[in-house]
Design a protein around this nucleic acid. Structure first.
Length: 300
DNA sequence: TCTGGGGTCCTAGGACCC
DNA sequence: TCTGGGGTCCTAGGACCC
């Protein structure tokens, strides 16, 4: 059974949000410290990662295995503190779902282990929202059906599919602390986008064109840096009343140049005259990404 | 917090083809 | 000309995550 920990790295008692690039650099340094230990790491976000240290935890009994991860976790926390003067919160459990819940359990500088033997009881009092994949909407649906804690979900006799569709069976297993998601190690990027919320809603063509040009240039640069090209361009608009819509177009040619992205974006906006009233937000994205091979394929 | 930004995944409907 | 069923692709929207 894999033993996984989720770590959350928290700037110590600092409420001022550091500049993003500083944050990112710090994140890289810490992830490097983690990688140095030789474990398998899935970085979830700038300040979170799942670590599979099952290679270090080889006891016959599942809970004895988890306990073997404790000294590793303690040492990791110490290393991060010594090298970066930051605290790290770590959760230890048998899978990603529980490791994350464990790491959320005690926030600043925490270390929580959820034993296999105790996981079902541990989960019972927690709100359904604590489960991965349950957001505001799903929480509302569950609450209406009388399911407010994970315990009540464990006890629910009906089929959750009637409430949450195909997520039902997975959710039921989550409620019992069962999760077989593997670490995702691929760093494949599926889409790249950016968006801008204006200080004041606007339908000024000059402002909108300028915004799109800047976004297209940024996307082009990010694609080139990763040696990617796109086959789909998407625009996103939000009006003053918060109505949000997207329009996308897929093309056969590979798109990497800012000008091509920009032109397709203008086409999408113009096609249905979407800028019929002032916009609160304008966004631009590319997807359907492929690696630039540097070499054309020849078809006979 | 009258609502930021950058992502992923799922679903549903329509077009199109056989 | 009308009818149908199934598969696939594209598009749009929404839920969710950090």
């Amino acid at each position: 059974m894999p033993s996984v920990t989720a770590g959350r790295l928290c700037p110590r008692g600092v409420f001022v949000r550091p500049r993003m690039d500083v944050y990112k650099q710090e994140s890289q340094e810490i992830m490097r410290l983690v990688a140095e230990t030789g474990v398998t790491v899935e970085q979830m976000s700038i300040d979170e990662a799942y670590i599979d240290c099952s290679a270090l935890c080889q006891a016959d009994d599942a809970d004895a295995s988890l306990r073997q991860a404790l000294p590793f976790a303690q040492e990791l926390k110490q290393r991060i503190r010594a090298a970066r003067q930051l605290t790290a919160t770590i959760g230890i459990a048998s899978n990603k779902l529980l490791a994350k819940i464990a790491s959320d359990h005690k926030k600043p500088d925490g270390l929580t282990l959820i034993a296999e033997r105790e996981k079902v009881q541990f989960l019972r009092p927690l709100p359904v929202r604590a489960l991965y994949g349950v957001g505001k909407k799903t929480e509302e649906i569950l609450n209406k059906a009388g399911i407010d804690t994970i315990g009540s979900m464990q006890d629910f006799p009906g089929d959750l599919r009637a409430l949450v569709g195909s997520f039902g069976p997975v959710l039921k297993r989550f409620a019992f602390g069962e999760d077989n998601r593997a670490l995702e190690l691929g760093d494949e990027i599926k889409s790249i986008s950016n968006e801008e919320t204006f200080l004041h809603d606007t339908d000024d063509r000059k402002i909108l064109r300028h915004c799109l040009r800047e976004q297209a240039a940024d996307l082009s640069e990010r694609m080139k840096r990763r040696r990617l090209s796109a086959h789909t361009v998407q625009v996103k608009l939000r009006y003053g009343d918060f109505t949000t819509l997207t329009r996308q177009i897929s093309v056969e040619e590979s798109i990497t140049e800012a000008n091509d992205i920009y032109r397709l974006a203008c086409f999408l906006l113009g096609r249905e005259k979407l800028v019929s009233r002032p916009l609160r937000l304008l966004g631009l994205g590319v997807s359907n990404l492929r690696e630039i091979s540097g070499q054309q394929l020849a078809f006979l």
